[in-house]
């Protein structure tokens, strides 16, 4: 009987602990204070946190910067369009002028021949 009493006395608190609700989460201000204390207490811990944040920020900036710097596609496309238009027009003018020169020379020859 005494053994049973001891077993029950040990099991009841164990069951109570096992079924107890989880401890309430600590408020953010308390966590912040704990973190700040830890950072103040250990300078290397503080530096490692700052480095992590900086690296992430730097990475984001670099990614954005690279995207901007590499986005030359549209600029090149616009300039290519301008040059193609200009080159096409100049080529058209040049060919037209050559044809007209030949035609004028031929017509003059024909007229001179006819007048002789």
């Amino acid at each position: 009987m005494r053994t049973w009493i001891i077993v029950v006395l040990c099991l009841v608190p164990a069951l109570a602990v096992a079924q107890a609700p989880p401890a309430a989460e600590r408020p953010a201000s308390e966590l912040r204070k704990i973190c700040a204390d830890a950072m103040n207490a250990d300078p290397s811990f503080s530096e490692s946190i700052i480095m992590t944040i900086n690296e992430e920020t730097f990475r984001q900036h670099k990614t954005a910067g690279d995207a901007i710097a590499k986005d030359q596609k549209h600029v090149i496309l616009a300039y290519a369009a301008l040059w193609l238009l200009a080159a096409g027009f100049v080529l058209f003018l040049w060919r037209r002028q050559q044809t007209l020169k030949t035609e004028i020379a031929q017509l003059r020859r024909d007229l001179e021949t006819a007048s002789k």
Partner: peptide, 20 residues
């Protein structure tokens, strides 16, 4: 170029008038 086109037209008219 436009002036040359005009000259071609005028020469053609002359040629037509002259029967060439």
């Amino acid at each position: 170029s436009v002036a040359a086109e005009r000259e071609v037209r005028e020469l053609r008219e002359k040629g037509l008038d002259a029967g060439v």
